[in-house]
Design a protein around this nucleic acid. Sequence first.
DNA 1: CGAATCTAAAGCCATAATAGCCTCCTGATA
DNA 2: TATCAGGAGGCTATTATGGCTTTAGATTCG
Lengths: 134, 134
Amino acid sequence: MLITRASEYAILSLILLSSAKEPMDSETLSRELSIPKSFLAKILQALAKSGVLKSYKGAKGGFALDKETKDISMLAVMSCVEGKAPAVFECAPAEKSCPSEQANICSIWPFLHKLQGKIDSFLEELTLADIVEE
Amino acid sequence: MLITRASEYAILSLILLSSAKEPMDSETLSRELSIPKSFLAKILQALAKSGVLKSYKGAKGGFALDKETKDISMLAVMSCVEGKAPAVFECAPAEKSCPSEQANICSIWPFLHKLQGKIDSFLEELTLADIVEE
DNA sequence: CGAATCTAAAGCCATAATAGCCTCCTGATA
DNA sequence: TATCAGGAGGCTATTATGGCTTTAGATTCG
């Protein structure tokens, strides 16, 4: 899959968390954003694992940003939330000879690579700060 | 859903078609790209309906670009291939008061709008020509 | 210190949407 | 008219989404 609801929910959460002074628990985030609680919890856990968020257990626990907003790129968010690699466009017949295994290269590979590069750069440079700042 | 395989397959097909002089039939495209035939057929049909491709029936039929590569934006491709609107990020609690129905506006709406605008601009300006040209 | 409480973490299960498969129908070409 | 390829629909499998329960770590209070 490429970009799913998980990415959307992740970004919604990050926007809200960026203006919070205290950690917010998943239930509150779920309510504020009208996002299913259990699904959101998994997403927040993934963000915590990758270091975007920090989690706090116990009373008054929850999640808080663990980086500056300018250091949180959309690419990083999507990469960790979507199960798979940050890859968006893959060369379908890759298993055969596409990337570089053989001397002959799939004819569309260079173009895919170019497209992927453009998308990655865009998402890499687009940070939470770009969205949140006035 | 936001960006699915349909978009990926569409773009792969367009890249291949951009270098074809004759119309290519869905079976050939399917084989060249290792994409399931019937699924690809639906995608090509959608692209034809929206005017990106032109379809030819009968012997020696198939699909061919119906626009200059510089006039085919990734946004247009994804918009027509994905069932839904080109919207990527929606305000979840939109049903209540988010966009403009009420005087009070959902606190994250402006940020979402900003993000959506950035993504749309990027995909709008990114054309098939940008990918295919040397 | 220990118990009660709070919340993240992790698992399993149900549902909804997507991805993929197959068949018949329609229009065009030769 | 015979054949080729798109158009359209139904059906199945896979994946994403969402619901729920249990476990584990942390805090608060007695």
